[in-house]
């Protein structure tokens, strides 16, 4: 298990006008691990992800990537660092095929002509590295794919660029049982390939099935970040709904104080 986090957030604040959405949030993402980011609706998960991906600028706090403090001001900055986000709505073009979607906006060119062959080979290479065998042809239109296959394409698109951190926003939300299993397997494989994976999910079964660490947000504060093996299902639910569970989480009397429960503190 890696000792230093790949991506580390400390003391992140974010307000929209008078409403402070994130209070002093910290999060560590380790290479080769799946970190689940859980929290109720409105807890600030999406805002946090958008801060990491550069869609929102943070008001205070530091972002450290591979040991260096970085400033992420736009999605381009995040991509340049190797941070990719797969949003819930996937952002795929139905009228384009798998290869075209995977390279959208970053097409390989040969002079002014698109280098379709190289792109097709690279796309196939990436899908193979993820052990994806569920698509019939790389030249299939995305409109003809099932929900799970689309999710697979979106994930494959995010790892095509030697990305180091992949953030997945509810990848299994709209999927059936078999497809959920497939996507979770893929999520696990991303981490096994050495990437730092952040998985946002509402489904506790999914969270416990694949994640190494669980970070629970409660009303814009990081209630706890713990190892998945150290906590139970119900403890996480309590963290999500109440912000604390036993000696875990936010102290009841002074909720503004942030307690970073590092793995070592948890018995």
């Amino acid at each position: 298990m890696a000792a230093t986090p790949l991506l580390e957030l400390r003391g992140i604040d974010k307000s929209f006008g008078p409403v402070q959405v994130l209070h002093d949030v910290g999060l560590s993402v380790y290479p080769g691990e799946v970190t689940a980011l859980v929290g109720d609706n409105g807890a600030g998960k999406s805002t946090l992800v958008k801060c990491i991906s550069g869609i929102y600028n943070i008001d205070a706090g530091t972002v450290t990537f591979e040991g260096k403090e970085v400033a992420v001001h736009s999605p381009r900055d995040a991509s340049a660092l190797g941070i990719e986000v797969v949003y819930q709505d996937l952002a795929l073009c139905d009228n384009l095929d798998i290869v075209q979607n995977m390279f959208l906006g970053r097409e390989k060119k040969n002079g002014i002509v698109l280098d379709e062959d190289t792109m097709e080979e690279m796309a196939g290479e990436t899908l193979r590295s993820l052990s994806v065998r569920t698509v019939k042809s790389l030249r299939q239109l995305v409109s003809s794919l099932s929900g799970g296959q689309r999710q697979t394409v979106a994930i494959a698109k995010s790892v095509l660029w030697n990305s180091k951190v992949v953030i997945l926003d509810e990848p299994t939300a709209a999927l059936g049982v078999a497809q959920t299993a497939q996507v979770l397997e893929l999520v696990r494989r991303l981490a096994d390939n050495g990437l730092g994976v952040v998985l946002i999910s509402h489904n506790m079964n999914d969270v416990f099935a694949v994640s190494d660490r669980i970070a629970a947000l409660y009303l814009g504060r990081m209630a706890a970040q713990v190892k998945a093996s150290d906590v139970t299902h119900s403890q996480i639910v309590e963290l999500i709904t109440g912000g604390r569970s036993g000696n875990l989480g936010l102290p009841p009397e002074k909720p503004s104080d942030f307690i970073d429960i590092t793995p070592g503190d948890v018995q």
């Binding site: 999605p75 996937l90 952002a91």
Partner: peptide, 10 residues
Amino acid sequence: GNTEAARRAG
């Protein structure tokens, strides 16, 4: 095909 996807792709 998908303006939002295009925008996000830069």
